[in-house]
Amino acid sequence: MSGRAAFIGRVAAELEKGLIIYSRYRIWLLSDLISWPFWTIFFFLSFLMYSPSLLSSQYHLNAFTWSFFTFILVSSFMWASNFLATSAQEGILEYVIMTGSSIREHMLGRSVVSFIDLAVGGPVLLLISAAGFGTKISVAYPHLMLVSLVLASAFFYFFSSMLAALLVSLRSPWIIINVAQFIIPFTSGAIPVEVLPPEIRSTITYSPFFYVIHPIVASATGQYFMPPVLVFMVGGILCLAIYLASRVLEDALLRRALRHGKFTLF
């Protein structure tokens, strides 16, 4: 079998594995579908407690709905980072390496679940916001929204691979993931830029995550903080950089595993 065919076979096997595992836990899907409306209410009101009058502003309701949409996106991919540590702890990773597969390909099996979570959870969130809070969901620039979602999904897939390599040897990587899943989106553009004070607006542009998170909210509200071309160009470069970083870390992890017999970068 040629190298290319073997690669496609391994990727297909990982995707199949991810889908089979996901389909085994149907109770998870049911649990998620019921719990998402409640978590949406919780997050909405936790933020809007400070200004309940915004509950009557359609613009802000729409903007915050897309804020929480980005949270679902980031959270779905961040939790995939936990997968590698679990694989290492359960002794699966050694067998994966023996099959000639790579860590990134192995991560794909878990990331497909992230994509499904986003594909199901995202629309459910929009529906809940419309039905529960009366939000008129709108997207000012649908074509830019599409590009934003593709860019953010690719970025966070590579980012979760990189993070997984960094956290692989921790006993409780979920602690870091749990904290990061909130800090990253809500300090990097998930909260609509136009509602922030001017001094904070310019500060958050220094976050690399801003260039992949802000476009989602901005495409919905129509309020880009910078020219869209510039935002997408920087976002694309960052996506490429994070891909390269994930490859370097994966190679380093593999080299150390072969030399020292355990999966750790430190």
Partner: peptide, 13 residues
Amino acid sequence: MFSLLTYGAGQAL
């Protein structure tokens, strides 16, 4: 972490 995050958002709002 969470209360400061929402407080920050509250300040902004």
